[in-house]
Each structure stands twice: as structure tokens, then as C-alpha cells.
Simulated scan of single mutants.
Amino acid sequence: MIYTSLKLAHVLATIVWIGGMVFAHFFLRPAVMSLEVPERVRLMHEVLRRFFNAVSVAVLVTLVTGLWMIGRVAKQLVQSGSSFSMPLSWTLMAGLGILMMLIFAHIRFALFKRLSVAAQSMDWEAGTVALAAIRKWVAVNLGLGVLIVALVTLLG
């Protein structure tokens, strides 16, 4: 029961993260392009602040539940006298997931900070530059997230 609950939390956190990136990249960003630059920068700053706070929680939940599930399976196998060898799909998911977390940390603590400073100081040019960098790295993370889902689904 605990494994199933952890897996549910893991999947739901992943849905929040990947789904939010899809929404922001393909629906929100194109819609705000019709706004004047100051309004666009302010709006995106506020939306991304809220989203990045939610993703921070999702990242922690994903990391903790993923490690716990791997550890639980490994412990059960070892206790039953078997050896544990992590499946390829789990190895890929864990490695690419850690890469996504590192990219998110860069987005959240470096790029978003630049956006925040620009929005606060009303430096709209710097704000648009920060948003472009955030968009690029969100697209990379979205691609990695979709790749992870495809690998885990196809490799089982």
C-alpha cells in the first residue's frame, strides 16, 4: 500500500511539472504575446513565480518518492536473498530526472531571479531577455520530461 501511494504521489507531481510546462509553453506564452511588453513581463513574472513554487514542491515530491521506491524494492529483494539490479527504464528515469531537476534549479534560482530584478526595476528589455532564456530551458526540460515518460512507458 505504501509503494502504491508513493507511486501515485510521484506520478501526480510529475503531471503538475510536465503539464505546467506544456500549458506555459504552448498556451500561455503565445496568448501573452499580444500584450504590451511591460504587461507581458509583469504577468509572466507573477505566473512563473506561482508555477515555480509549485514545481519546487513537485521536484521534492518526485525526488523523495522516487528514491524511496527504489530503496524499498532494493531492500525487499536483498532481504529475500536476491540481488538488486535497477532496471534500465528506472536508471534512465532517475538520471534524466536528476538532469531535469538541475535545469529547473538553474531556471528557478538564476534565470527567474533575473526576471524578478527586471520586473522590479521596470527594465523591460532585461525582462524579455530573461523570459527568452526561461522559455528555452523550459522547452529543454519539457523535451526531457516527455522523453522520460516515453522511455518508461515503452521500456516498462
Rank of each mutant, 00 (worst) to 15 (best):
I70E: 05
I107T: 04
L99C: 13
Q76R: 06
S80F: 02
V55E: 00
I107V: 15
L60H: 04
Q76W: 01
G97R: 14
L67V: 10
Q79F: 04
L96K: 10
A110T: 14
W90C: 05
L96V: 14
H106F: 14
A58C: 06
M86L: 13
M100A: 13
F109V: 05
M93I: 02
V73E: 10
V64H: 02
L67K: 02
W68D: 03
H106S: 13
L67T: 06
A74C: 04
L60S: 08
M101T: 11
V55D: 02
F104A: 08
L96S: 07
F104I: 02
V55T: 03
M101L: 08
S80A: 15
V55R: 00
K75P: 00
W68T: 13
T91W: 13
L99Y: 06
G81Y: 05
R72Y: 08
W90P: 00
T91S: 15
S83E: 09
V64N: 01
S83W: 06
P87K: 12
V73R: 11
M93N: 12
S80E: 11
G71D: 03
M101Y: 09
P87R: 11
V57W: 07
G66R: 01
Q76M: 07
A94R: 13
K75C: 01
S56Y: 00
L88Q: 14
G81E: 05
V57I: 10
L60T: 03
L77S: 04
T91C: 10
T91R: 15
I103Q: 07
M100K: 05
S89R: 15
T65M: 03
G71E: 06
V61A: 01
L67P: 03
F104Q: 08
L63R: 02
M101F: 12
I107L: 11
S56T: 14
L88R: 14
K75W: 09
S89F: 15
M86G: 05
R72T: 09
L88T: 15
